[in-house]
Design a protein around this nucleic acid. Structure first.
Lengths: 247, 247
DNA sequence: CTCGCTTAACTGGTATGGTAGTATGGTTAT
DNA sequence: ATAACCATACTACCATACCAGTTAAGCGAG
């Protein structure tokens, strides 16, 4: 997070991006206190833009602002992650099924391009790059159904999940598996099979539920002491039989 | 919007609420300029909390901040309204179907209570009160599936649609029809019929598509000069045959 | 040594001042 | 008369100052 800010552009959004990245990549750990003063000094800006960044972070659920006490990185909450996942699944499944009706062929080409780039990143074992292409894939799909203005909402929701993904990087769901799921989604859309496209997206976005409880148990210091809500247990059960590794 | 602010609580969120309400109810018209100075003076607060309110309004898509130029209420965009509606339908249909599995009986009681209150408001022809209970109905349903933390996202998305609803108040979809739809949703959930609950919610949330193009044509000064995205035309077509008034 | 109170050093929230950039209206040159 | 220009009066954004409330440490009494 040593990037300098560009004083010719608006500062507050830059600070927000940098802090969000630092929190999501666990450079800032849960429980850590963030000081407006200190962050401002580090980047050579005043407290005001830092404060505005804090407000956005709190709306994304990454920090908790306690007036007159301090601003703290929140611990990862299985409940919040599951709820974010629920919203994201709802929206992106709708995007995938709608894409079957309205996505132009060029969009499918772009998606296949991104899948090829993902395979390349996987071949080089570059997980960071893979995550970038993964995000681009989902954003491109949203744009394909003319829902570009809906993507910012997904992006806000995603923050909760991204922190878990970075935490699971060393032993994440293998990239090849996720890429195959992407390919299946695009295939279903190309064949205009709405049900299959939705199911494929649903399965894809439920991957995180496989690792979440295990990660929470392995890192009790990083997690809030809460449980999965009922809808997440439902969702996990619905897919648990389908995606076990072959013996 | 003559309410005074409570200086003992945080001011910025109060200003946001007041301005949002004023914009949604068309007290502030599209194109109108909002001045930090003037708003601050009116409520007896400084420019800073007003500025923070402006930022939130711009994230909700209700105003557009042009640096060094001014902040303006945006015209209603059919594209933005339709995209907001798309996201909301996706999330709330998922909420309704999930409710069939996990909603506790008490939640259904509360929903039926709210429906009764809506009927009462309709009997008194109190549209404002009806809209409040309508919002409470949807929020309560979200809480019933332990998605309370997902509601703020729906709320943000809803802002775009709310302005259209207030615009259509004089000749809106009759309240009784909307209430019947609410009742059907609760009945389907009570019978644990997920498909029917989802369909009922979908139909309910597509009501706005019936009036949107007509309103845009009737109020060209309030609307951006754009068109419905493809997914909205799809959605409108899918329901147009089902809900025509009986002959 | 322990408990309770005072006080000083923080915090976030608000107010105010300064700066750079944009629209506008009046003025001047053509 | 018209078009180009410049001064002025805005704007949003950032920096700085101030305030109220919380925390924690230090001191004194028991």
């Amino acid at each position: 997070m040593r990037n300098e800010v560009d004083p010719s552009a608006a500062i507050a959004p830059q600070i927000y991006r940098l802090l969000r990245q630092a929190i999501v990549t666990l450079e800032y750990l849960p429980g850590q206190r963030l000081s407006e003063q200190e962050i401002g000094a580090r980047f050579g800006v005043s407290r005001q833009p830092v404060r505005e960044a804090f407000i956005k972070l709190s709306e994304a659920g990454l920090v908790r602002i306690l007036p007159q006490r301090g601003t703290f990185v929140v611990r990862i909450s299985m409940r919040d992650v599951a709820n974010a996942r629920f919203v994201r699944e709802a929206v992106e499944v709708a995007v995938a099924t709608t894409a079957c009706s309205v996505a132009p062929p060029e969009a499918l080409d772009r998606l296949n391009e991104l899948i090829a780039l993902q395979r390349e990143a996987a071949a080089n074992d570059d997980q960071r790059l893979f995550l970038r292409y993964d995000e681009a894939f989902h954003r491109t799909l949203a744009e394909a159904v003319e829902c570009a203005s809906a993507w910012p909402f997904i992006e806000d929701v995603k923050a909760q999940m991204d922190r878990v993904r970075y935490l699971s990087l060393p032993a994440a769901s293998p990239m090849s598996r996720l890429i195959d799921q992407h390919a299946e989604i695009v295939r279903a859309i190309a064949q205009r099979d709405a049900r299959r496209a939705g199911d494929a997206m649903r399965l894809h976005l439920r991957e995180i539920l496989n690792s979440l409880p295990r990660l929470a148990a392995a890192h009790p210091d990083l997690f809030e002491d809460d449980e999965l809500p009922a809808h997440a247990r439902e969702a996990a059960n619905a897919t648990s039989g389908r995606d076990v590794a072959p013996a």
